[in-house]
Every structure is written in structure tokens, then in C-alpha cells.
Design a protein around this nucleic acid. Structure first.
Length: 457
RNA sequence: UCCGGCUUAGCUCAGUCGGUAGAGCAGGCGGCUGUUAACCGCCGGGUCGCUGGUUCAAGUCCAGCAGCCGGAGCCA
């Protein structure tokens, strides 16, 4: 599509320059960087699709235009017209020999973000401008590709998208701290999960997913936490835990494969070692929770023998892991680092899981839950399992968790009227983007992160 | 909430033994036909987070507070 007005030349984007070699074209974008000598100015122009070097020569554009080019400030928006030609030194790279240019929007004062280093807090304060950088541009594109791959996967496997509400009348699982809002005089909470609603929808459509923002008010300050994050939650009627794990595996292989297929260039900008991603192929190892505890116990035993157990400031020594313990970030890393691809841990103690998990018929201590742990220490990116489909057991679970029964009556209706076995999971988009891009922190994976100490910009 | 670290120019940082403030980048001016976070020269730029204390003297030592970062817990 062409948005041009007066120019006689076709207006193109940087990414398509290879199709216009020898032609005179017009590009519109922002000045990313500039290098100048007495008779040449090198203007690096970015337009979202890429960055191109435009060479303004004194001999070609005249003294007045040359002086103007020489004084252009970083991030000035420009329309540049010139001839497309091959870069004399870099094969496969194209540049523009400037014939003329016009300033669209000048820069008032100094642009805060220079080509040199900045600290994270400063950059986050200028997140609205930071998004223009090469690196953030690449992350946004990978995020987009992941979201599109997620939708394409489910849409291509007969799932129906069913949006869950953001305002909820109760704390769904009764575990997390939720954001409370005033809802016309009543208390309402921002959703922490669309799962219960997905279960209702699955009883209508069979295979559904919801995809939207979720909110957690916990005062978590780690590289894996956001107050607002996006989650996709498929839910499938007549599916059991084994089917759930198979779905999660096939789905993850598909999503990672798509990024490798479509976003090589962006992963290269991010300096991601893609060999880690190439190994994301089925089957993923499946590890029983109890066996994972065994692995942690052996690691503890080895550290004890080596005398490297951690002593807390209050004098207590690191305890030997045992059945019933949940996994922290360190434990997840120990388990996942034993494998070169995502690992599925399943059949957790029921005491660690929410009320809606189905008990393992073979072992009443266990819940039919599973987590997918990403490699390289990225931790849990998927959590899910088979849901309790028996009315009486679910009622007992709600009572045992001391949850307000009346708030779940609609949910219990799903078990009263033609209950079926069903299962699903939730995938955290930002953790998946962080892992795929090899980022140290989830804060760069979302355009405008909301964290414990950040609500703006 | 708990533990640890950091806070000096617009930005990123250095600042020794306590002795009165430095560099690079950014900005301005100048130089250079092919530069790649270009380079070279010159110029302007400071409430050393805040409050208090020790001292003849505090960016530097001590205490409290604030902000930020990392981790724990909880989770995706």
C-alpha cells in the first residue's frame, strides 16, 4: 500500500528495498543515528521494518540541504528520496543515495536515549521511547509472532476462542492476592485466570481457549513476575492428564518452531543462541513429582557431602527436600537443567494445588496436575492439569480450602449437568517470550510492564 | 514482608589514606569523501539521593529514611 502524496516516486519500507535496486524511492521514518564528514552525511533511517543508511553528499544535494542534513537531531522524522543501490562493503545490504529529504517532525531539545549505555530504570521511565530501539523492536516482533502462533495453533486444531471476563466477583482459586476494585458499590477483583470460565465454555464447545491479560497483586519482585501479564488457557472436554501433557508438548513445539521459522533475523539481533530452541522437539521428558523430589534429595546429599549447603543468617541450615515441598526457582533449575528441552513434571501433592484439580485415582495424595519447565533456568511456563469432575469431591475440596461456597455455585453446576472429564493448562506469554528471546527479565517482553514499583508510563 | 547491593553532570560511570569534582557519551562549535555505538580538537554542564551525626575538614566514616536493583515467599 502507498500513502504518498506529492512524491513522484513510490514510497517503500526499508524491508522491501531489495526489490527496488536502481530505482528512486521515497522512505519515511526516523533518524536512528548520524555520522558526518565534510562532504558526506550518513543518515541511519529506521521505519519499523528495518534500518537503512542514506548517504547525503554535498555534491548531490547542495550546500543548504547538506547543512540541514548535517544538523539533523536523533529521532527527527524524515521523508527521504533517493536511489537504491547495493552497499559497497556489505553484500546483501542496500543503501540510499539521497536526492532530497524533508523533515516531517523536528526534535525539541535532546532525545533522552543516546546510542550509548543506559540503566534499566532510566530506560523504563522512557519506555515509550525505548520501544524505538533495535532490540525492543525485535522483542516486540517476536512477541507478536508468539501470540500469532498461539492463536494459529488453537484455531487450526478446532478450538474456539472464548474470552473470559476481567472483572470477577470472587478470588477464583482463593490463593493469590488480587487487585480489588470498586464495582458500582460492590467489590470486584481483576482476574487471575480465565480457567473456570473456560471450563464452562468447554462444556458448550468441547475445545476452547481464552487469551487475555491477568493480574496478580502479590508483592513479587523477581525477574519472572509482572503484576499484569498475558495468559492463554486452553480447556478440552473429555481430555485427561496424559492428553493434556501431549497437547502442551505439541503446542509448545509448534510455537517455538514458528519463531525459529519466521523470526531468525530478530533472534539474531537479540544474540539468541538458537541451538537451545532447535532442541525443542517432542517427546518432552515426563517426570513424576515424587521422582523430581528424589533428584533434589540426591543433589542435597551431594552438597552435604561437599559441605556446600546454604546456612541462613538466622543459623538454620538448608533442609533436605521431602514429599510435599513445592519447587522454588532454584529447584526448578536443578530439575530442568538435567534435560536439554522442556520437561513436564506431573502428579504433584494435592496439598500444593488448587481445589479444582482432580485427585489421582491411583494415589489419593496426588493431584493430576502438571507443569512444563522451560530449559536454561526459565522455569515454569505452563501449569495445568485434569479438573475434578465429580460434584461431591469438588464440594469437599471447596470446603477444605475454606472457599466461599456460594461464589462457586455456578461452577458446581458444570458438574451437576452432564459433567465430563476435562483438562487444560495456562501458558504465560511473557515467560515464553523471555525464554524464546533469551532475556534475563520478563519486563522487556511486554510493551508497557506493570510491576510492583512501576505503573508508568 | 524479609535478606543483600546500589544512589556522583542529561546518560553510563570513576573518585585511592577524609583535604574542597573527573572521564566517556549526549548538546554546541570546528576538522575529515565511505562512516558503522565513526573518529580528532575546543566549549558549556554538579544541592555527590535526603536528614542528622563524628571531624579543623565528609562524595568518602556512622545512623535513620527514601528510591532503585537482585533474591526469597507466591506464582505463569
Amino acid at each position: 500500500m502507498c500513502y504518498q502524496s506529492r512524491a513522484m516516486h513510490s514510497t517503500v519500507r526499508v524491508a522491501s528495498l531489495k526489490d527496488h535496486v536502481g530505482a528512486t524511492v521515497t522512505l519515511r521514518g526516523w533518524l536512528y543515528n548520524k555520522r558526518a564528514s565534510k562532504k558526506l552525511v550518513f543518515l541511519e533511517l529506521r521505519d519499523g521494518s528495518g534500518i537503512v543508511q542514506a548517504i547525503a553528499s554535498l555534491a548531490d544535494i547542495g550546500e543548504a540541504k547538506f547543512a540541514e542534513a548535517d544538523h539533523l537531531a536523533q529521532e527527527t522524522s524524515l521523508s527521504v528520496t533517493g536511489e537504491v543501490r547495493a552497499h559497497p562493503k556489505q553484500p546483501g545490504v542496500f543503501e540510499i543515495a539521497v536526492k532530497t529529504f524533508d523533515v516531517i517532525g523536528a526534535v525539541a531539545g535532546e532525545y533522552p536515549i543516546t546510542p550509548k549505555d543506559h540503566g534499566t530504570d532510566f530506560l523504563m521511565d522512557h519506555r515509550h521511547l525505548w520501544l524505538r530501539s533495535k532490540r525492543q523492536n525485535a522483542i516486540l516482533k517476536v512477541r507478536h509472532e508468539i501470540i500469532k502462533a498461539i492463536r494459529d495453533y488453537f484455531d487450526g486444531h478446532d478450538f474456539t476462542l472464548v474470552d473470559a471476563p476481567i472483572f470477577t466477583p470472587n478470588a477464583c482459586e482463593g490463593t493469590s492476592t488480587l487487585f480489588e476494585t470498586d464495582y458500582h458499590g460492590d467489590k470486584a477483583y481483576l482476574t487471575q485466570s480465565g480457567q473456570l470460565y473456560s471450563e464452562a465454555a468447554a462444556m458448550s464447545l468441547g475445545k476452547v481457549y481464552c487469551f487475555g491479560p491477568t493480574f496478580r497483586a502479590e508483592k513479587s519482585k523477581t525477574r519472572r513476575h509482572l503484576a499484569e501479564f498475558w495468559m492463554v488457557e486452553p480447556e478440552v472436554a473429555f481430555m485427561d492428564l496424559e492428553g493434556d501433557m501431549a497437547l502442551a508438548e505439541d503446542f509448545l513445539v509448534s510455537v517455538v518452531g514458528r519463531v525459529l521459522d519466521k523470526r531468525r533475523e530478530e533472534l539474531k539481533i537479540l544474540e539468541r543462541d538458537t541451538s537451545h530452541l532447535e532442541r525443542v522437539q517432542g517427546p518432552f521428558p515426563r517426570v513424576l513429582y515424587e521422582d523430581a523430589i528424589g533428584v533434589l534429595q540426591r543433589a542435597w546429599d551431594a552438597r552435604k557431602a561437599a559441605g556446600t549447603l546454604v546456612t541462613q543468617p538466622d543459623g538454620t541450615v538448608e533442609r533436605r527436600p521431602e514429599f510435599g515441598d513445592d519447587f522454588g526457582a532454584d529447584e526448578e533449575t536443578v530439575i530442568s537443567s538435567a534435560y536439554d528441552r522442556p520437561v513436564i513434571v506431573h502428579r504433584y501433592p494435592a496439598s500444593l494445588k488448587a481445589f479444582y484439580f482432580k485427585r489421582d485415582p491411583a494415589d489419593a495424595r496426588l493431584a493430576l496436575g502438571m507443569d512444563v519447565l522451560a530449559p536454561e533456568g526459565y522455569g515454569e511456563i505452563i501449569g495445568g492439569g485434569q479438573r475434578e469432575d465429580d460434584l461431591a469431591t469438588l464440594e469437599a475440596g471447596i470446603a477444605a480450602h475454606k472457599l466461599p461456597r456460594e461464589a462457586f455455585e455456578w461452577y458446581l453446576d458444570l458438574r451437576r449437568y452432564g459433567s465430563v472429564p476435562h483438562a487444560g493448562f495456562g501458558l504465560g506469554v511473557e515467560r515464553t517470550v523471555a525464554w524464546t528471546c533469551g532475556l534475563p527479565h520478563v519486563r522487556e517482553t511486554i510493551p508497557f510492564p506493570r510491576m510492583l514499583n512501576r505503573l508508568g508510563p
